[in-house]
Amino acid sequence: MKRFFIQRLEGLLLLGLGLMIFKLYVSGYLTKLIAPKMVPYALAALFAFLVISLLRMKKQKQGEQYCDCGSNGESSVLKYGLFFLPILLGFILTDFTLSGEVLAKRGMAKQQAQMVSSYDSGKHANGERISVTDDNYFEVLDDLLNNLDTIEGKEIEISGFIYREDTFTKKQMAISRLSMSCCVVDATLYGYMVNGNVEGMKTNDWYTITGTLKKGSYKGEPVPVIDLKESKKIKAPEEAYLYENVQIIQ
């Protein structure tokens, strides 16, 4: 009897977990929590949860399967109650951005050559005007870092959200993006320091800015810095994250 209840409770929880993944997937929130390459695994889990849930819900023929050796009466509420937490969170959360305070505790990633597929060195740094998109983000960052001495005065256009640290002056901010490789847990902040008249721009708001590049520093490391010319407020994009794609077989 008790077993039967537990068995159905497990079925119910599996159904809940499946519905939670389903809801996040349909509403498009799933890729704000895990990277696209992990989505197929989550969908496979969704499928498995629903199948097993149905099998668990099914009425078992009494007496055939169950021997009472597994009578675990102790606090099943506590044991299974924990699973309601992720299910409910998945159902009620609609905003999946990490707060600015949390990001400030992580700091901007010390940039270095990373996950950059082959490109001609200097391709971006030597061009007249650099326009940064999602697709060439890391390429441009890498190229500028490698050619810091020749980028002075080049014009750049870039979009991102405003990020500040306590040590920034009133004339300083960073225009930044978050990237993830597996899930939001490993979210890493990348960005460019921006100098200029930035007081009116609110932290965490999204802007497209244009400006000229020069060599500067962040926490003692030489980095490209943008002198602000123009800025335009934009809506936060659907794809807020950059995804680091590790391609082993190409």
Partner: peptide, 13 residues
């Protein structure tokens, strides 16, 4: 909560 849900969804499969 957001980080927890991300960790959960990543590992659960």
């Amino acid at each position: 909560f957001v980080v927890f849900l991300g960790l959960f969804l990543e590992s659960i499969p």
